[in-house]
Design a protein around this nucleic acid. Structure first.
Length: 376
RNA sequence: GGGGAGAUACCAAAGUGGCCAACUGGGGCAGACUGUAAAUCUGCUGGCUUAUGCCUUCGUAGGUUCGAAUCCUGCUCUCCCCA
């Protein structure tokens, strides 16, 4: 993997760049749609490629390991071939499931033992086998196995958790660097900076990950319950330490506002379930603000969903029709909303990139933040 | 013509003397959702701007009772069976 920094903003820390992988290029800053089990829920590949212009999507190690399982993935020739997705893929390590499935796992120095949320069967994730699983999945970018502690973790817990994440990182790198990709394209490993909401821990973590000299670095453990302001402070602390010539990936973030502010702080990559999950639940993100399409106020609003939006659904379908689909429980509703939201997210980061390159990012960003966070 | 059953809030449907402004489901209205156990979950749904408070409600008109959606009587309407 290669990263070229094309432009750094003069008024903010925003950057525009290009990542090159064996499956193609990614223009940063970028938003990566989440496709946990090898599918961006409710959205077809054709729509992802042609309408949304997704340049890279996510998969999840834990979920793909349980279903369809490693045998199937291996026989298929990896996730790219299995799912017929020829652009880049990034897989999360299952570290987030250490957090979200906390009541079904146990942490030890060795790793994390899970009970499957599907059938209750026991499984052990270690830094080593998580690297092996991600080799089998075959993502272009694979993530280190970490612990993602909750946003309200106290200092003692946060410190111990970071100790664990750092030990696991050492083992992840060791394993990754002594194994080979299985399908003829190269893979790269991103470490994850943890440390909760404690600046000194974040600082220590950001310094620690650099000794492995990887192609990119991620910031994890944010947007897990802490206030947005605290998240921005942590991003600032970490980004002041991470090398400038490597992409920085803020995991799991976020709202359009979060993304714009984090781009200004020097983040290059984002992923979040919000455009798809909230979309399925009737929430539309637009350049004019946030819409709950189920609300009665849209019942007879026959104007397009988003007249200047980038995807075909934006101009083709009206708000009233989309509301009707949601109220009637038609699955087309969530599909349209997901396509719209992803199209908007990709449009937003593309615009941000354009303004970084053109040199007027800051005023554009400030005006945009105001608009996108408004409730309509 | 004869016999039987029933009328409860937007709909369906519990409740058959006080714990009933009334279970539950649907519908409606609103909210939540940030490296996806989510096409999920939560709240409200007679009125009074808030209520452990007040007022009006269980077809309708009366009655019994300290107290009635619940018991009694008349009326209206609906459904089923037999002719």
């Amino acid at each position: 993997m290669d990263f070229k920094l094309l432009k750094t903003d003069t008024q903010t820390s925003a950057r525009a760049g290009v990542i090159t992988t064996d499956h193609g290029q990614i223009e940063t800053p970028i938003f990566m749609p989440v496709g946990t089990v090898g599918s961006v829920k409710g959205v077809s590949h054709r729509e992802l490629e042609n309408d949304i212009n997704a340049q890279i999507i996510l998969g999840n190690t834990y979920h793909l390991y349980l279903r369809p399982g490693l045998d199937v993935l291996k026989q298929a020739g990896g996730l790219h071939k299995f799912s017929s997705w020829e652009r880049p893929i990034l897989t999360d390590s299952g570290g987030y499931q250490v957090f979200s499935l906390a009541d079904m796992r146990k942490l030890t120095a060795q790793g994390a033992s899970f009970r499957s949320h599907i059938d209750g069967s026991p499984h052990l994730f270690t830094p080593e086998n998580v690297m092996d699983i991600q080799r089998t999945i075959g993502a272009d970018i694979v993530m280190a196995f970490d612990e993602c502690p909750p946003g309200d973790a106290d200092y003692e817990y946060a410190r111990k958790s970071l100790d664990l994440t750092e030990k696991w990182l050492e083992r992840c790198v060791q394993r990754f660097d002594t194994t080979e990709p299985l399908y003829g394209h190269s893979q790269t490993l991103f470490p994850i900076v943890q440390g909760c909401v404690y600046p000194d821990l974040r600082k220590r973590a950001a310094e620690n990950v650099q000794k492995y000299n990887r192609d990119g670095y991620a910031i994890g453990g944010l947007s897990v319950g802490e206030p947005a302001e605290v998240m921005y402070q942590m991003v600032e602390v970490v980004n002041s330490i991470l090398p400038k010539n490597k992409p920085r990936y803020l995991m799991g973030v976020g709202t359009p506002e979060n993304i714009l502010e984090s781009i200004a702080l020097g983040i290059d990559m984002f992923d979040c379930v919000m455009p798809t999950r909230n979309g399925r639940n009737g929430m539309l993100f637009t350049s004019e603000g946030i819409i709950n399409i189920r609300n009665k106020k849209w019942q007879t609003d026959f104007s397009p969903i988003d007249p200047f939006g980038p995807t075909f659904v934006d101009s083709r379908y009206s708000k009233a029709y989309l509301r009707h689909l949601f109220i009637a429980g038609e699955m087309l509703g969530p599909q349209i909303a997901s396509i719209h939201n992803l199209g908007f997210y990709l449009w937003l980061v593309k615009e941000a990139r354009k303004h970084i390159v053109e040199g007027d990012f800051l005023p554009w960003k400030n005006a945009m933040v105001k608009k996108v966070s408004k409730r309509l």
